[in-house]
C-alpha cells in the first residue's frame, strides 16, 4: 500500500495522470476529459446505449481486431519477405520452425473475424435504423471502411504465396479483366481504338493496373504487399478517425428520440 501511495504521489506519476484515481464522481469525469485514449468517449452516456443487447459491441470489436491485426502484422513484417524466393518459405518456417509462429494464425483468423464483425456491426446499425439522419454520412464512411476491410483481407490473402493464395487472387482479379470499356475482355473495349490500334490490351487494362503484370506474379506480390501493409491501413486509420469523430459529433450512439 505504502509503495502504491509513494508511486501515486511521485512527480513522474503525476506528470502522466494529472488527477487522483477515478474513484469518485468528480474524478471519473475528469479521467474521461484528460486521458487521450479515453477522450474518444463522452463523459456520460445513456444506459441503453451501452446495453450489449443493443450494440452487440461489434463496432468496438472490429476496431480492436484492427489493432490486433496491426500489431501482429508489424511483427510478421519483421519476418516475412515478399519475394518469390522467400515468401512461401518464410510462411512455412512460421508454421514449422519459428517460435511464436502462432502470430500468423492470430493474424489470419483475426482477419476473417474482422470481416465478419464488420458485417455484424453494419447489420446492427441497419436493424436499429442508426444510419438515419443525422448519421447518414457516417454510414457512408462505414461502407467505405467495409470495402477497405475486404480489400485488406483480399491483398493479404496473396502473401503466403501458396496455391490457395495465387488462385484465389487470380479468380478474384480476373473480374477486372471484364470491366466495361477498361478491361480487355470487357464489353465495349473494342470501341477504344486509335487509328486501328487497341488502347485496351492485356498489358494496359484494369487488371494489369491491379496486378502490375499480365498474370499474378512477383510484381503482384510486391504491389499487394505494399497495399496490404501501408496504403490501405493508412486509409483505414484516417477513415476510422473520422468515423469515431463523427459518432460523437452526430449525437453519440443512436437511440430513440
Amino acid at each position: 500500500m505504502a509503495i502504491g501511495e509513494t508511486i501515486r504521489n511521485s512527480q513522474i506519476w503525476k506528470s502522466i495522470f494529472r488527477h487522483p484515481m477515478p474513484l469518485d464522481r468528480r474524478n471519473r469525469i475528469v479521467v474521461m476529459l484528460t486521458n487521450f485514449f479515453l477522450h474518444l468517449h463522452p463523459v456520460s452516456i445513456k444506459k441503453q446505449g451501452i446495453a450489449l443487447s443493443f450494440t452487440w459491441c461489434m463496432g468496438g470489436v472490429t476496431f480492436f481486431l484492427f489493432l490486433v491485426e496491426t500489431v501482429t502484422g508489424v511483427l510478421l513484417m519483421f519476418y516475412y519477405r515478399p519475394t518469390l524466393e522467400w515468401a512461401y518459405n518464410d510462411i512455412l518456417a512460421l508454421r514449422d520452425v519459428t517460435s511464436l509462429g502462432i502470430l500468423r494464425e492470430l493474424h489470419r483468423w483475426g482477419a476473417h473475424a474482422m470481416v465478419i464483425t464488420t458485417w455484424l456491426h453494419m447489420y446492427r446499425v441497419f436493424l436499429t435504423g442508426s444510419y438515419k439522419p443525422p448519421r447518414e454520412f457516417n454510414w457512408v464512411i462505414g461502407v467505405i471502411l467495409l470495402l477497405l476491410t475486404l480489400l485488406l483481407s483480399f491483398t493479404g490473402y496473396l502473401l503466403p504465396w501458396d496455391q490457395l493464395a495465387i488462385w484465389a487472387i487470380t479468380v478474384g482479379s480476373n473480374m477486372a479483366r471484364a470491366t466495361p470499356l477498361l478491361g480487355y475482355e470487357g464489353p465495349g473495349q473494342q470501341l477504344l481504338t486509335i487509328g486501328g490500334l487497341d488502347m485496351i490490351t492485356d498489358g494496359s487494362d484494369a487488371r494489369f493496373g491491379l496486378l502490375g503484370a499480365r498474370f499474378v506474379g512477383e510484381e503482384t506480390l510486391n504491389r499487394f504487399y505494399v497495399l496490404h501493409c501501408i496504403a490501405i491501413p493508412l486509409a483505414v486509420a484516417l477513415l476510422l478517425a473520422i468515423h469515431f469523430w463523427r459518432v460523437r459529433k452526430d449525437g453519440g450512439i443512436s437511440g430513440p428520440l
Binding site: 479521467v31 468517449h41 456520460s44 452516456i45 445513456k46 444506459k47 441503453q48 450489449l52 459491441c57
Partner: peptide, 24 residues
C-alpha cells in the same frame, strides 16, 4: 415507447462503458 426509450437514464462512461470494453 420502445424499450430503448425506457432505459434512457445517463450513466458515467467510467466505469460502466470502459469496463465493458475491457472485458470485451
Amino acid at each position: 415507447p420502445p424499450i430503448e426509450k425506457v432505459n434512457d437514464e445517463k450513466v458515467l462512461v467510467w466505469p460502466d462503458l470502459v469496463y465493458t470494453e475491457l472485458i470485451c
